[in-house]
């Protein structure tokens, strides 16, 4: 595997872990408070829907778009998507947005599950089925989006799919062992890292894909070829640290004591 493939694998693996930790919180809350059978059936249905969605979207994109157009369209989408993650990371690190807290989300999901009345039909608890289906599908679509965009742009779908599957299995095994939400996973830091990788690869491919508008319709060359990706990731990191420092909210001034002691 070359450097680009390692970067591709790392980005997809981390994204997969982050999204699956969020899905696991919802699944655990439904299973532990309502019905494990219905919850797991919801998870199964979501995985089938995700597999069908991946196959259809991947085939359509790979078949209908020429390489440079694919890089422009997918690189652009990946860049916008990655910059949203980076924006949240910068706002969280500078104290302008609350940190993502799995324990709090788990408590909210448990409260909602207990509050919902009996929704049983055909031997299934449809509340836990639907909530777990929605949670796994929505979080999974983000992973699928990254797998398809990264895999097609880098021309290495096996690495992208393999990394996503490893991420899902890792979260699943640890989740079963812990039997609760994985609040110890440094999700905010992981999202920051994935945001940087998406921004780096996304800007490389989006700009490269502008070549579709030239007469040759060939991708544009970056100085240093693939090495430019590393430079871009480093530059995005430098910019994000600068923004965190610039946007950081000042610490509240200590209240002076009036007791005299």
């Amino acid at each position: 595997m070359d450097a680009a493939a390692w970067g591709l694998g790392a980005a997809v693996l981390l994204a997969s872990i982050v999204e699956m930790v969020e899905a696991l919180t919802i699944v655990m809350a439904m299973g532990m408070t309502r019905s494990w059978r219905s919850t797991l059936m919801g998870v199964g249905a979501a995985l089938v829907a995700l597999a069908a969605f991946t196959a259809a979207a991947g085939y359509a994109l790979a078949t209908w778009l020429p390489e440079a157009a694919l890089q422009l369209a997918i690189g652009g989408l990946l860049l916008i998507f990655g910059l949203q993650w980076l924006r949240k990371a910068v706002l969280r690190s500078s104290g302008r947005k609350a940190m993502h807290d799995e324990d709090q989300i788990f408590a909210e999901e448990v409260a909602a599950a207990r509050k919902a009345g009996e929704v049983r039909q055909g031997g299934l608890d449809w509340f836990s089925f639907m909530i777990s289906f929605k949670g796994v599908f929505l979080e999974g679509v983000e992973v699928v989006f990254i797998v398809i965009t990264f895999g097609l742009s880098a021309g290495n779908m096996p690495v992208a799919i393999g990394a996503a599957v490893i991420g899902v299995l890792l979260v699943l095994v640890v989740g079963i062992a812990v039997r609760g939400p994985l609040s110890k996973v440094p999700e905010n830091t992981l999202k920051y890292g994935v945001g940087l990788l998406l921004a780096g690869f996304g800007s490389y491919w989006a700009v490269e894909g502008l070549g579709i508008f030239t007469d040759s319709r060939q991708s544009l060359d970056w100085p240093g070829a693939d090495l430019a990706i590393l430079v871009l990731i480093a530059a995005w990191f430098g910019l994000s640290r600068l923004l965190v420092r610039t946007l950081r909210r000042p610490e509240p001034a200590p209240v002076p004591s009036t007791s005299g002691s």
Binding site: L86, V207, E208, D221, P223, A235
Partner: peptide, 15 residues
Amino acid sequence: LVLTPVLGVALMAAF
């Protein structure tokens, strides 16, 4: 070879 790095910097400035 000139446009690609310039656009990289421009994307960062735009963000």
